[in-house]
């Protein structure tokens, strides 16, 4: 893994450092604003309210399950896009990124059209199996996975395309099946890309709002994740909304930093 930093000599170029610092400030200043305005005095009592714990737990569970769904479906999809001889691969690749450009609320409505009680597929799920996804925790997971999967697919596909296919070919000449080569040769070599994609995917799922509230609705304990709780708190109690946001930020930054240390910059 490329974690060793090498000094390539000379001073850091101003043309890069200035915009980099401006960019950093642009990303961090709103965060500072949030922290400055947080009601630190009442923070502990607000944090201990059961509704905050419930929303946080639900958020973490749903984002993690959504990430598992994305891994199970997304890694093979990325492999297909990078290695498979599928016709119209360019179009497919563009279609995979649709959830990135689609306003999440529209994504939620689209999910309702397909998986809702009267949706294309949902009506049969309801009639044949009595399964109804909207307004359930499973619906939250689906909405989050829909929005977050492109992040994983794009990262993994990028890693696959950067990886040298000759190793797989060598494995094949030694008698390995494509499946065995994928598991034993390809996957280990693209692991950093998979981990980076997983982290992005999880973070996106954790912050998901629009598709979730549209497809899964909002009910405490079942579908009210942190972003939904933040949005509704903002209506009447901006202080509570700030507290919830700070909690979400701290938890996500903590998890991402821990993962990064463990998986990305750790010894390989």
């Amino acid at each position: 893994m490329t974690t060793t930093r090498r000094r390539t000599g000379g001073r850091l170029p101003v043309a890069l450092v200035v915009p980099a610092v401006v960019g950093l400030a642009f990303l961090l200043v709103p965060l500072v604003g949030l922290l400055v305005r947080a009601p630190w005095g009442t923070l502990p009592t607000r944090l201990l309210s059961p509704s905050v714990g419930e929303a946080l737990r639900l958020s973490l569970v749903c984002a993690s399950l959504a990430t598992v769904v994305c891994l199970v479906l997304g890694v093979p999809l990325a492999w297909l896009l990078a290695r498979g001889d599928v016709p119209g691969r360019g179009v497919l690749r563009a279609l995979v990124t649709v959830p990135l450009v689609l306003p999440p609320v529209v994504g939620g409505v689209a999910l309702l059209f397909v998986l809702g009680r009267r949706g294309l597929v949902g009506q049969y799920l309801d009639a044949w199996f009595g399964v109804s996804l909207p307004f359930t925790t499973a619906g939250v997971v689906l909405a989050e996975a829909f929005v977050a999967m492109p992040f994983l697919v794009i990262s993994v596909e990028g890693a696959l395309r950067a990886a040298d296919p000759r190793y797989e070919e060598a494995a094949a000449t030694l008698g390995a099946s494509r499946w065995l080569a994928f598991r034993r040769v390809t996957l280990p070599s693209i692991l950093p890309g998979v981990v980076a994609g997983t982290v992005l995917c999880w973070a996106r799922a954790l912050g998901e709002f629009g598709a979730t509230i549209t497809f899964a609705g909002n009910f405490p304990g079942e579908t009210t994740t942190m972003p939904l709780a933040v949005y509704l708190a903002l209506e009447t109690d901006p202080d509570a909304a700030i507290v919830l946001s700070v909690v979400l930020l701290l938890v996500s930054v903590g998890v991402l930093a821990a993962l990064r240390d463990r998986w990305i910059s750790g010894p390989s």
């Binding site: 409505v109 309702l112 059209f113 809702g116 009680r117 307004f135 549209t214 909002n218 009910f219 949005y231």
Partner: peptide, 20 residues
């Protein structure tokens, strides 16, 4: 016994309109 508590009235209307 609501199944969902929507963020605004138009969201409720959408859920009714779609038959959800």
């Amino acid at each position: 016994r609501p199944d969902t508590l929507e963020q605004d009235v138009k969201a409720v209307l959408t859920k009714v309109r779609l038959g959800e």
